[in-house]
Amino acid sequence: MESIIGFFNDPYINQVLTLTGVYLITALGLHLITGITGQFSFGHAGFMSIGAYTAALLSLHLETPFIINVLMGGLAAGLAGMLLGFPSLRLTGDYLGITTLGFAEIVRIVFINLDITGGARGLAGIPRDTNLTIVLLLAVLSIICMYRIHDSRFGRALTAIREDELAAEAMGINTLLYKVKAFAIGTFFAGVGGGLYAHLIQYLNPADFGVSRSFELLNFVVLGGLGSVPGTILGTTVLTLAPEFLRFVKEYRMLIYSALMVTMMIFRPHGLLGGVNFRKLYLDLVHRRLAQLAKTKDVGGKQQ
């Protein structure tokens, strides 16, 4: 028991796990946008940065409570998502992807040019308020939210849009409105993740929220299993932790990672857990077990 507590108290382990949780919350937002609603977003890091800077600036200048700041970060990102969503979610597929990417780049360049964000030098001295407990709590809460959304009228409308937007519209779903809502919620999660990130790393630089970060988040969601919460958890955890374990092959790490992206898409285009229905697997297992029990009971009965 003590060794377990010791393990989590180790500053390095603690830091890495907290960061994983922060990325997970952010990635779950993208899971809702891309995995559930089927809309491409190549600029998730941009929304993360909006949340990060909002929360950090509130902490530094207004000294409002940490949780409020993180929440405000989420709301700021969600609002930005909504404002971008209304005009651009009329676009489909790649056009939407490239628009979100462009938006995130513009956000990054604006942050480089503003004084209040510290420009390209970055923003330092953010208090370290994020800890493992709070992140785990929020991550679990986010996971529950995702499951509940998925099993609701709201969530079914989103999956309908992913499956066939035109049919969804014909079924009475205001597709544009629902897409904007999904986008706003997804970017809200990114903002919350950003706020937590800021108070964990204690330093923000626009360069940390560039295209590569956005694509990294996309990989978390896709490689683990697109449209699947366990997939997103797996993808985020493995891809955040792997670099830590692969430090000895540091130089070739990215080479392996990128080659993996290609092979993965060729052999499992839906990601590792994509298309795996855990609930069904579990139910099947239960059924089989019950059937087995009934059978042994039968046999037993006959023998008597």
Binding site: N219, V222, M261, M265
Partner: peptide, 30 residues
């Protein structure tokens, strides 16, 4: 990287393309 993915999902070839892009960047940096 692309031909095996023809007829796959919309996202798969994009991720594959990103993989190739990252691979070449890393290779040339090395």
């Amino acid at each position: 990287a692309y031909r095996p993915l023809r007829g796959s999902t919309r996202l798969a070839p994009l991720i594959s393309a990103l993989g190739v892009s990252l691979f070449l960047q890393t290779l040339m940096t090395l």
